[in-house]
Design a protein around this nucleic acid. Structure first.
Lengths: 202, 202
DNA sequence: CCCTGTTGATTGACTCGTCAATCAACCTAG
DNA sequence: CTAGGTTGATTGACGAGTCAATCAACAGGG
C-alpha cells in the first residue's frame, strides 16, 4: 500500500496546486497555500517535488499528455474533417466544463508563459499543433480542404479560436451557456467562413 | 522644458520597462532592471510611478488606447468587410513587426494575466472585442455576413487567431516571413472558410 | 504475541536570499 | 539660493527551500 499511498499523496498535492494556481496564479501562490489546500505541512511538498516550478511542470507534462492522447485518437478515427473538428472542439470545451481549474492553469499559467517552458516541454506543447496540421494536411490531399490553405496556419487559427473562447469564458466575458453555442458555431465558421458569398475567383 | 523633460523621462522609463518585461517577464524583472535599462537610478522610478504594478498598468492603458483608436478609425472608414478585416489584421501584424517587445508584453504579460486586471482595465481591454463585434453586426445587417453567425463569437475567433499567430511568432515556432502569408490567408480563411465545398444547406 | 529496529512519511521553526519601496543626502538649472 | 530632479544605501517584508526531530507502519527474531 505504501506505493499507492505515495502516488495518491502526490496526486493530492497536484490537485491542490491546480486549485491554488487557478485561484491566485502561479506567482501569487505560496507553497504554503498549496499545502493548506492539500491539508498537509508545506515541508512535505518538497518530499514529492524538487521545487515550486517542478509542480507546475508536472501538471503540464502529465495533463497535456492526456490531451495529446485524445487528439491522436480523434485523428486516427475514421470520420470526415467536420466530425473530427467537432470532436476536438467539443473535447476542449467539455474539459473546461468538467475541470475548469485545470484548464485555467493550463491556459493562463502555462501556455501564456510558454516562452519560459524548457525546450522539451515546449516541443511537447507544440505537438498539439503538429497533430492538427496533420489532420488538415490529409484533408487537403483528399480534396476536402482548399489547395491554397496553409494547414499549419489553419491549426493556429483553430486551436487559437478555442483558446480565446475559453479564455473569454474564464474572464466571465461570456455566460456559461455560451459554450454550447460555441461547440456548433466554431467549427462551422471555421470550415465554411462567415461570408454569405464566396469571392468570384481569386 | 521641465514639463517636457519630465514627460520624456516618464516615457523613457516606460520604454525601458517594455524592454525589460519582454526579456524576462513581469515577475522576472526587478525594478532595478528597468532602471538599468533606462540608465537611471531605480529610486527615480518611484518619482514617476507609484509602484511596479503601476508601470505595467500604464503600459497597458496608454498603448492599448492607441490600438483602440486605430480600430475605431478602421471601423469608421468606409470600405467593405474584407478591407476592414485586412486592415485590422495587417495593423496588428505590422505592430508586431515594428514594436515586437511592446506586443510581447501586451500579449504575454497583460492579456494573459487579464483575470487580474482591475475592472476598469478589463473593460478597456474588452472594448476591442466590442468594436469588432460592431463591425460584424453591421456587416450582418448589410447581408454580407451570414445570418446564423454570432458576431461576438466571430470577434473572438478573429482576434484570437491573430493573437495566437503572433504568439507562435514570439515563440519562434514560425519564421518571420510567415507574417506576410498570415496577413493574406488569415482574413481569407476567416471569411470564406477552408473547405472546398459548402454544406448542402443547414 | 510482543519487542525492537528500520524505513519513510510528516512536521514546522528556521535560514537565507531577494527585491520592492523608502528616504536622506546630493546635485543642478534657473 | 532653492525647488525639484536624482541618487543609491538601507530597510523590512516576504517566501522558497532546508533540516532536525517526530511519528506511524511494518518486519521478523525471540
Amino acid at each position: 500500500m505504501a506505493r499507492t499511498a505515495a502516488a495518491d499523496k502526490r496526486e493530492i498535492i497536484l490537485q491542490a496546486a491546480v486549485k491554488a494556481f487557478a485561484k491566485r496564479g502561479f506567482h501569487g501562490t505560496r507553497v504554503s497555500d498549496i499545502a493548506t489546500e492539500a491539508g498537509i505541512a508545506y515541508g512535505l511538498i518538497y518530499h514529492y517535488f524538487k521545487n515550486k516550478d517542478e509542480i507546475l511542470n508536472a501538471i503540464f507534462r502529465e495533463k497535456w499528455n492526456l490531451f495529446l492522447a485524445i487528439l491522436r485518437n480523434i485523428d486516427q478515427d475514421n470520420g470526415d474533417l467536420q466530425t473530427k473538428l467537432q470532436a476536438i472542439a467539443g473535447f476542449f470545451i467539455d474539459s473546461y466544463r468538467q475541470l475548469p481549474e485545470l484548464m485555467e492553469v493550463l491556459i493562463l499559467e502555462i501556455l501564456h508563459s510558454s516562452r519560459f517552458l524548457e525546450k522539451e516541454n515546449l516541443a511537447h506543447f507544440q505537438e498539439a499543433f503538429t497533430i492538427m496540421e496533420g489532420i488538415f494536411r490529409r484533408a487537403q490531399k483528399d480534396g476536402i480542404l482548399a489547395r491554397e490553405v496553409d494547414p499549419f496556419l489553419s491549426s493556429l487559427i483553430f486551436l487559437g479560436s478555442i483558446e480565446t473562447a475559453i479564455t473569454a469564458r474564464i474572464l466571465k466575458t461570456v455566460p456559461a451557456t455560451y459554450l454550447n453555442e460555441l461547440k456548433v458555431q466554431l467549427v462551422n465558421q471555421f470550415l465554411y467562413g462567415i461570408a454569405t458569398q464566396r469571392p468570384a475567383a481569386t
